[in-house]
Structure formats: structure tokens, C-alpha cells
Simulated assay, not measured.
Amino acid sequence: MNIVFEKNHQRAFGTFPLKGEVLRAAIEAAIAAGYRAFDTAQMYQNEADTGAALAGCGIPRDQLCITTKVGVENFTPQTFMPSVEASLKALRVDLVDVLLLHWPAPGGDIAPSLRLLEEAQARGLTRHIGLSNYTAAMMRQARSIVSVPLVENQVEFHPLLDQSVLMAAATETGIPLSSYCSVARGEVFKYPLFAEIGAAYGKSAAQVVLRWILQKGVPINTMSTKPENIRANYDVMDFILSATDMARIDALTATGYRIIGKNLIPYAPDFD
């Protein structure tokens, strides 16, 4: 595994839904805070803005970990590779560090898009490949189809949603999870427990949430436009939640609060 990937991938800066000057300023603040991993996607329509910001940030390319995702509209043999090449051009790089399939292929046949993803890696368009929004059954199927390592399944993961089925599938398949919507788009702040626990560690509610995710063994993607929040989201490696506090937070996963599903993405799978 690439050393830069291993070092930086635990804490990535997510770029959705930022664009233009707002995105440039956020990336600048993220770089200053210490972020070296950045996550975008074809669907976000901000790859060019992300590429411009990273090209001008002063950090050598070999110290950055850049992830993008192929949209389902490009899951055909005619469009897949050209779309990835367009992403690379927009991002101003020769290859990305991680290329993900943004969603399982609509209709249920995930094999063709997985084979195209594997081909993209073989062609040198990406260092690593992975998945996003795959169910446990799809993770097992993907593992049987793809002959190279799949470095992540990026999924909604936060303390208000029980993802134990996916965690078990990650252990079974060797495909690690990574987290988006890590603070449930602010929903976690309605629960006093996080601030209460944070007070004991000198940390904010958000930092407690992010630390809980990391202690689950799941890398985090976070996004903010406020420099102070960007710094705080990165500053989560200098404390460890006790087993008791982890268990208190674990209990909240029974809330079953899911943000991303068929309500927003009609072709989303039936999640576990």
C-alpha cells in the first residue's frame, strides 16, 4: 500500500458541495490545518475547481492523496475511460490515488462496472480502486469479481446509524469502510451526549463523533468552510475515547437516522 495513502487517508477533506472561490478557500484552510487527502467526484461537478486549488496549494503532488468517483452515467465501455481521463485533466494530475465507483450499477449487475474499474487501474489511471455505497452482499460479490485489492467502500457512517452489517462485511471481505456524512450533516448536535463526553476530554461534540468513527477503524471524510472547524475536524488524533464512552455512543446507533437513500438517489440500493 502506498505510504502517502496510508498516512493521509484516515482524515480526508470532502469537497461536496463546494465550488469556485468557496472551495478554493476551504482547500487552502484544509492544507494549512494539515489535510493532505482530498475527496471529489464527477457528480460533484467541482473536479476542475479542486484541481486548480490543489495545483496552487504549494504541496508536492507526491504528498497528496486525491480521490474521485465515477458517476453511474459513465458505467459503459464507451464512456468509462474517457470520463476518468476527463477527471484527471480537470484535476490536473496524471493519475488519482483512489478511484471509486460512486454507486453500485443501477439494475443490479455490478460486474461490468467493476471490471472497468479494474481496467482503469491496469491502464495506470489510478493507484488504488474502491467502492462507494455498496451493500454487504455487493461487497462480497465485488471481492469475488475483482482480483486486486479494493481499498475502501465509502458509505454513510456516523453514530446515529447502525452499520454493523457493513462492518462485518468489511472484516469478511477485507474491503475497509470509510465514512461520509460523518457528523450526519449536523444531526448529531441534537444529542447532548457528545458535548458531555467532549467536556471530559477538552474536545468538541464534533471531535468526539469523529474520534468515535476513527476508533471503529473507519477513516473519515469531513467538510467545512470555516477554518476553525476545518482545523478542529483534523485535530482528533491526540485523545482516545474510553471503552465506556465508546459504548455510550454505540447505543445511539439504534436511532437509525439515514441521510442518503432512495429519497435523494433513486437508484440507491436497498441498504443493509
Rank of each mutant, 00 (worst) to 15 (best):
M1V: 15
F5S: 10
K7L: 13
H9L: 11
R11I: 11
A12E: 02
G14Y: 04
G14S: 05
P17D: 03
L23F: 02
E28R: 10
E28S: 15
I31C: 03
A33W: 10
Y35W: 01
T40S: 13
T40V: 12
T40M: 05
Y44Q: 11
Q45S: 14
E47I: 09
D49W: 03
A53P: 08
C57V: 02
P60D: 06
T67V: 14
T68C: 06
E73C: 11
N74V: 00
F75K: 01
T76F: 14
P77C: 13
P82S: 08
V84Q: 04
S87F: 05
L91Y: 06
L95R: 15
D97A: 13
V98Q: 06
W103I: 03
P104A: 12
P104H: 06
A105K: 12
D109H: 11
P112T: 11
S113R: 03
L117C: 04
E118W: 06
E118G: 02
A120C: 07
A122C: 10
T126H: 09
G130W: 00
A142S: 04
R143A: 12
I145F: 07
L150T: 01
V151Y: 01
Q154W: 06
E156I: 08
P159D: 02
V165I: 10
V165R: 14
L166V: 05
A168S: 10
T171A: 15
E172N: 07
I175G: 02
I175H: 00
S178A: 14
C181L: 11
S182E: 12
V183Q: 13
V188F: 05
L193T: 03
A199C: 09
K203Q: 13
A206L: 06
A206W: 01
A206G: 11
Q207N: 03
V208E: 05
R211S: 02
L214C: 05
Q215M: 03
Q215L: 01
K216D: 00
T222P: 05
T222F: 02
P227L: 02
P227K: 05
P227A: 07
Y234Q: 02
Y234I: 03
V236R: 01
S242V: 01
T244I: 09
T244N: 13
D250R: 13
T253V: 12
G256Q: 13
I259K: 13
Y267T: 15
Y267I: 12
A268G: 00
D272E: 08
